[in-house]
Design a protein around this nucleic acid. Sequence first.
DNA 1: CCTACCGATCGGTAGG
DNA 2: CCTACCGATCGGTAGG
Lengths: 212, 212
Amino acid sequence: MSNRSNITPAAVRTVALQLFAEKGYHGTAMSEIAARLEIRTPSLYNHIESKQALLADIVLDTSQAVYDDFAAAIRRPEVEGNTPAQLSAAVQVYAHRHATHRHEALVVNSDVAALDEPVRSQVFELRRTHERGIRDLIDAGRKSGDFHVDQPALASFGILEMCVAIARWFRDDGPLSAEATASSHAEFALRLVGYTGSLTGLGGPNDEVGNV
Amino acid sequence: MSNRSNITPAAVRTVALQLFAEKGYHGTAMSEIAARLEIRTPSLYNHIESKQALLADIVLDTSQAVYDDFAAAIRRPEVEGNTPAQLSAAVQVYAHRHATHRHEALVVNSDVAALDEPVRSQVFELRRTHERGIRDLIDAGRKSGDFHVDQPALASFGILEMCVAIARWFRDDGPLSAEATASSHAEFALRLVGYTGSLTGLGGPNDEVGNV
DNA sequence: CCTACCGATCGGTAGG
DNA sequence: CCTACCGATCGGTAGG
């Protein structure tokens, strides 16, 4: 109130996100976050409750957004009722997020162990729900004869983790756009579940799917 | 010398491996390692040089073993000259290791950032060499017409990271053996690169590869 | 293998 | 927003 502050809670969070992603939660000191913002450590506590709360906010918000994206993607009218198109859309949106929100993804996936309960369990629950959603699509595709895969659970893990890995190697100044990366991963997902059809015209990865 | 010691450097390393895998390098205190061994913290230093050296040993040895496994797998006489069989063998051995050496894999992949130079760079170099080896196989398969994939680099990252993820979900008492998991992942890898042939009789994943 | 102990640094509070 | 400061804990050493 009585002091001119350039700093907002969102700014603290952005800096924390960068540092947690680079060095991990336990590897990051509050003093480093303060230094990047050019303030003293105690001043951080005008904007956040604690280091742990900072992590909890980041991880919960990100996990929730990931799930919301998934739910929205498979409900889009142009894919509804078309399982291969739904899987493609779900993978594209997930892969795209991991290319465009790398820091969030890295923190969610390497610092979840540093979360106190009950937040850690909430995050695991969101993740399980998402994974189950992917697996349900794979099961549906198997029943309809679109997909041919022996281990649906392994396929869903493999697909999701392939996308998570994007956050580890993607570079904004690299040769591939986030969209091209997302599109390739959607195609990989369809190949992985043994889809041999084509999704041309659906905005998904096109013709060369699963065959020569 | 003058004291009966139940403790060996290898025992310290095993306990450190468990704790680093569970809580991360920075999240693990030397006092916790000592407690699990039922000794006092300072006694650890009769067996190790420092916490950092403990991590370096674990990560370097594991990374080297991973690469040696890869090199041996693609040189086996029954796969030599057969690119799809080589890729299958390389993926099987990598996937299998991640199911049977979960702690090592988790530490290598989440605590590499905690390593001091020059060890961190050495580890990255080993990893790059391995990834290049996989990519070379994919390129060879494209040239021979066995594989059909637009983005070989994305495919090699995807294949490797799918295997790394095994360390995160595999359970010894789960429904799937390490061998079955490895076999499935080899099949996923061949599908991912657009292989439509069959590897039957090669000890790899069998008939149902990439087609109905 | 132990006790005794060190300097450094941690997250966070008091109080303005 | 700051200075001053806290108790706790860190990795590690001395010395036996």
